[in-house]
Each structure stands twice: as C-alpha cells, then as structure tokens.
Simulated scan of single mutants.
Amino acid sequence: MVDFASLPIPVIPYTPLCRPGVGIAVTSLGEVRAKVRMDFTTAPHRLDYHQIMLVESGTGDFTIDSTRYSCRAGSLLWIRPNQVIQFASATNMDAHLVMFTETFPLRLRAQMGMLDDVLRPCHWQLGDDELAGFQRVLALIQEEFGRPDQGLGEDILKHLLAVALMHIDQLCRSQRKDHRETDTPSGENGELFLRFRRELEASYRTTRLVEDYAAALNCTPRTLSRACRIVAGTSTKDLIDARVALEAKRLLVHTDLPVGTIARQLGFTEVTNFGKFFARRVNMTPGTFRRGDDPRN
C-alpha cells in the first residue's frame, strides 16, 4: 500500500499569519506570491488544508490532480487537502483566497460530504449572476475576518463559510446535466453515501467490487447504487473506478514507480488488466499519460 503523504511532493501546512489559532484565513493570490517563491508554486505541491480560489483578474493555467484548467476572471476553484496542484509558469492572475482546515467547517446536511470528496468537481466558470452572489459572500467573510474578535467572530466565520460552501454545492447540482428535482440528498441516502465515501477511501486499493462495499456497509448493492445515483448522479462502480484512476494518475505523474508496481499497489493482479482499465477511464495508456503526450494535461 502506498502512503501518499510520504511521497516526495512538498506539502504546505496551514500556518496563517493573521488570527493564529483560528482555522480560517482570507488573503489574495498576490499576497501569497509575495511570500512564496514562484519556482515553488510552479512545481507540484500539496496543501494540508482546503483552499477556495476565485479569480478576479488576469489569466493562467492551474493544474489539480493532473487536470489542467484555463482560468480567467470568474473562475472558481476548490483545492482539497493532498490534491497535487501546480501553477503555470506564465500567469498574471490575481484571486481571492479562502483557506480553512479540515475541522473548521460546520457539518450541515449530507451533501456537505463534498468537503471530503476528491471526486467532486473542483472548477467552475461562474456566470454574471453566480459571480455577483459569490462575491457578496466572500466580501462578508473578508469583512468579518478583518474585524476584531469580540467573542463570536469564529462562530460567525463558520456560518459564513457554510454559506459559501452551500453556494458551491448549489453550483454542482445546478450545472449537472442530469439535474432533477429528486437530486437533493437527504436522510438515509445521504448518510449511506457518506459512509460509502469513507469506505472507498479505506478500500479502493484492495477491491473494486460493488458487492464488497455493500457488504461492508451492511446494505444491498441496489440500495447503495440508489444512494450514489441520488447524491452523486452516477453509479457506485463509476465512483469506485474514478477513485482508483485518480490514484493511478497521481502515482504515474509524481513517482518513478514502474507501471507494474503501481498496478499491484492498486489491487490489479495483471499489469495488462491495469492497462486496459486505465485506457478505458483516461482514454490513453499509462505510459502515454506518464510522458504527458496528451495536450489536455
């Protein structure tokens, strides 16, 4: 089993200069650039905290887990802990940044499991109305963050962050092509989905069988499939395979491990089966992906 945290990819810890001890910080990309060497940000690195970035001006490319996003004013990105990120060397972007620890947010409805879900979308291009609404929320967070704390500041920031995250959750659902009235997760389906996501993180290297996950969660495959469809809009099998493919891409890009070793660490007994799986999910062979021959990455 690979301990991804031990791989030689730099990790930036959560060390805010303002309001230490509070699990949220508000700054700008320009301020970060003034404190961090450019050659560091343009090399692959990870954060041990969440970061929401709203581009205010300029353009540039930003890569999250081997997917490159072309950003401009109105681009919204959510970087989750341990995702491998990288700025393009030539960028004139400036952006609002909201950084927060994994334990800071309020835990609200079941869809807030997106906090822990690296398979959820992480990039949106906001329309005018969406952008104006999100900017108002960010302005409130920034105003409260800069205000002297009189006893309730942290609680207010928690609630304002919850509003921002629910805005993003609404974007996820409103931009889904198969959006339906029944897509809002609630009750047993939402809770089962969150339990499945935790089980998937623990077991994706050892099994890709829906039946194994259903057994671990003490439910039927059909019940689990229904929860995944309602909450995530896709099948249980697709979520399992997407998580395995994500780890495969990370290992191919950021380690020198042979393809056969990566295949075994992800539970494949034959490297040819891994190659077929990867080509089906990513539309190229592991070797092609590792060389970076595809212009999209």
Rank of each mutant, 00 (worst) to 15 (best):
D178T: 06
C172V: 13
R205F: 03
R205V: 07
T223D: 05
R208L: 06
R208D: 03
L194Y: 01
T184C: 11
D178P: 01
T223K: 10
T184A: 15
V210S: 10
S203D: 12
P185I: 09
R173Y: 15
T184G: 14
P185N: 00
M166Q: 14
E181V: 14
T206Q: 15
R195V: 05
L200Y: 03
T223R: 15
Q170A: 12
H179T: 14
I168D: 02
R205Q: 12
T182I: 15
T206E: 11
D178C: 02
D212A: 12
Y213P: 03
Q175F: 03
F193A: 13
L217Y: 03
R198G: 09
Y204S: 12
T220V: 07
E188R: 04
D178G: 05
D169E: 14
C172S: 10
R180Q: 14
C172P: 02
A214C: 09
L209E: 15
Y204T: 05
R205E: 12
T184D: 09
L171N: 03
G187K: 09
L194Q: 04
Q175V: 01
Q175G: 01
H179A: 15
V210L: 07
T223A: 15
S186G: 08
E191G: 06
R173H: 06
L171E: 02
P221N: 09
T223N: 02
R205M: 09
N189I: 00
E191T: 11
P221D: 10
A214Y: 02
S174I: 13
N189Y: 06
R176D: 08
L200N: 08
R208E: 02
T207S: 15
L171V: 06
S186A: 11
T223Y: 00
E199H: 02
